[in-house]
Nucleic acid binder design. Structure first.
Lengths: 109, 109
DNA sequence: ATTATAGGATACCAATTGGTGTTGTGTCAG
DNA sequence: CTGACACAACACCAATTGGTATCCTATAAT
């Protein structure tokens, strides 16, 4: 029933520094209304709300209405896709390290 | 002339699926000229070249001229920043968090 | 009941993004 | 020498992004 109308790419969702900061705030604070989030940024409420919508579309944020406020909380599990993607390349930067070490060893001799 | 044109955010560099595929191709192939990369995409040479420029600005790709062709290769180490960032949140997608979200959802009803 | 607050919904705007085609230049093959 | 090739450098364009200001409704406080 709760179908996501527009599924957003997680990679593009975390591309914006404001959205990464939102993720950080929500990770620390468990649950926050829009107002409390807005005051931490040098931009208006509408802009923050748009960023939260994008995070929601990527499944990174959930919200619930409590009285007159909408409280947002983090759902970090979509970030697993990022970790899976990036960990594939970890062997490539350790490979670079091995090459560098090789070059340094050759230089020493 | 040690001018680094504009240091690009690694997060935004990997936000585009075309650029992620370029990273993948370069990871597998060690070194590739622009032409060999272009034929793998449904777009023109100029578009692929622009994506490679963005990857270069993020430090993810290096290039060298060999004769009349420019060969590109991967430099994966900037991806470490991504891994550092995402690994911080791994604790948030644990089973306990999922249960908390579930409890909050039930409270809503 | 009145007023202040939280935030959804729009309309609007400038800058950026992701693509195109064209032109020019250096390089390799006949 | 003459083409064909690889690519950079532009100019250009539509769609998207990241922000604004404004209006409206629902809720809370007095």
């Amino acid at each position: 029933m709760s179908e996501n109308k527009l599924s957003r790419d997680v990679f593009s969702a975390i591309a914006d520094p404001t959205r990464r900061q939102l993720i950080h705030l929500l990770a620390e604070a468990e649950e926050l209304p829009l107002h409390d989030l807005t005051v931490q940024f040098p931009m208006g409420r509408t802009a923050v709300s748009k960023h939260l919508t994008i995070l929601k579309e990527a499944g990174l944020v959930l919200d619930r209405k409590v009285g007159r406020e909408t409280r947002f909380r983090l759902n970090a599990s979509p970030l697993r896709e990022i970790q899976d993607w990036v960990s594939f390349y970890s062997k490539y930067w350790s490979m670079n390290m091995m090459r560098l070490n090789q070059l340094l060893e050759e230089e020493e001799e």
